[in-house]
Design a protein around this nucleic acid. Sequence first.
DNA 1: GTCTATAGCCAGATAGAC
DNA 2: GTCTATCTGGCTATAGAC
Lengths: 212, 212
Amino acid sequence: MATAVAEEIKPNSTKEKILTAAIELMAEGGYTGASMRKIARKVGIRESAIYNHFRNKDEIFQTIMKNLFSNPFEDFFIKRPIEQYAIKGKAYLLEYAATIKLLTFDSKNEKFFRIILAELMHNQQVRELFMQYFYQENIKKLSNAFFIMMQHNLIRSADPILMAQEFFAPLFYYRLQVLLMHIDNKPTTALSTIFEKHVDFFWESVATQESF
Amino acid sequence: MATAVAEEIKPNSTKEKILTAAIELMAEGGYTGASMRKIARKVGIRESAIYNHFRNKDEIFQTIMKNLFSNPFEDFFIKRPIEQYAIKGKAYLLEYAATIKLLTFDSKNEKFFRIILAELMHNQQVRELFMQYFYQENIKKLSNAFFIMMQHNLIRSADPILMAQEFFAPLFYYRLQVLLMHIDNKPTTALSTIFEKHVDFFWESVATQESF
DNA sequence: GTCTATAGCCAGATAGAC
DNA sequence: GTCTATCTGGCTATAGAC
């Protein structure tokens, strides 16, 4: 399973430095906040030199999107067959939440999330990637898992898709909260265990008598 | 209870037209997307004429923020004493969700929500307003209500604040989804009853045997 | 209150020498 | 591949006539 075309970029090359600088600047100020001037200054070259590596600013953005979207979830659960793990019930959900928590507190993934949110209202392509990765992918996986749990009578019967959304929405909400706190350098101690608490609460909400 | 200082602006005045145009443009392109040029063209005056009504662009933005934040929730539930209604249990939650649904599908409030989200990553003041209105206010009201419901044994015992967040997060998530669909002119039929379904699911999750 | 005119800045991008 | 120099255009804002 080749990870969706992630471009080959030599480490320590100027091209890579440009991308790193652009990611940093876009995380802070979005697409328009990362001007070619600023990127060039951060890399230590002139603006015109950038054009030896990228046709224009948009190509930089496209490359970043491609690379950022290639890793994050793939490594964690896409590969493994869900069926085997869904029957573990709460343990599966705990692992799921732990993964999101990991992404939430990982600095590279935080930058990624921040760029996405900064451009969400400005760029249709970003919206589509957002819907795909922060909605469809997760809901598909989770609803499958819930369906299996229902079959094994681990949880009460309900619409699996609704249940998936109800489980996922708070995770997204907490992730956003953490991001907002980080941006303003506020402490996130109050949120440090919220992901686990969410799973506890949710499991109490859906578990059958037998499995509880 | 005077509604937080909402400025007096004469209807049909040039000042009001400027604000209307600015809201429209900022909903589409955020703060930077709404240039003084575009605002002036939309109103039908020259850029320089705007400065007879506002000191600078930021003052326009501030005025918009003040006015937008003055109405939305205030009218709905801030005024009424929660205690009397919380004991209605599910009916209270249904009304709460219905209110959010109303705001979600109301075009003025949608623009407001869109501007907030567009500037969320760029502007600390917006982040604080966001946290206040889309988090603290709602969580405070809801956790109070849940506390009362617990006292009346309508719902199972749990941390009221956690429960409030778990109830609110999906509402926020669904509102965001609707917004994203609207921006790209996609149908929201699949989401038309999701707010009610959320309440159903949630109530089944927390209701005690007696109250169910 | 609105206009014309203009200042000053920063943006993205290109040409051509080295 | 990097540089200097330059172009074009959008931006916020001000001065001063009407």
